[in-house]
């Protein structure tokens, strides 16, 4: 089982975490067309390579960001977006 390092709780088994999808720019609901908004709601890019993703440590309800390589499945870093500058 994979380990994931929660910025608050340290390394924990992956089954303690919930995946919340890639970090993306929230589309502007006031200007987006219906088609653009549907795309925003239903589709997420899943590019090979490094991706920023939202994760939640379920027992503590702590939400954070992980940078993961979607090809190798290596987690490069995890951080609390409240304290770290988003790259």
């Amino acid at each position: 089982m994979k380990l994931l390092t929660c910025p608050m709780n340290g390394p924990r088994n992956i089954d303690e975490f919930q995946y919340l999808g890639p970090v993306r720019d929230d589309a502007d609901p006031d200007t987006a067309s219906d088609a653009a908004w549907a795309r925003h709601v239903f589709r997420a890019a899943n590019p090979p390579g490094r991706l920023l993703e939202w994760w939640r440590h379920v027992p503590t309800n702590f939400v954070f960001v992980a940078e993961r390589d979607t090809v190798s499945n290596d987690v490069i870093r995890t951080f609390d977006p409240a304290t770290a500058e988003r790259p």
Binding site: Q18, D26, W54, R56, V58, N61, V63, F64, P81, A82
Partner: peptide, 20 residues
Amino acid sequence: VYAEMTFWNARWRLRVDVLN
């Protein structure tokens, strides 16, 4: 709902906390 509240606020960063 509790998870959603936390997740949304991780993005909105409003001055609020949620106690279950």
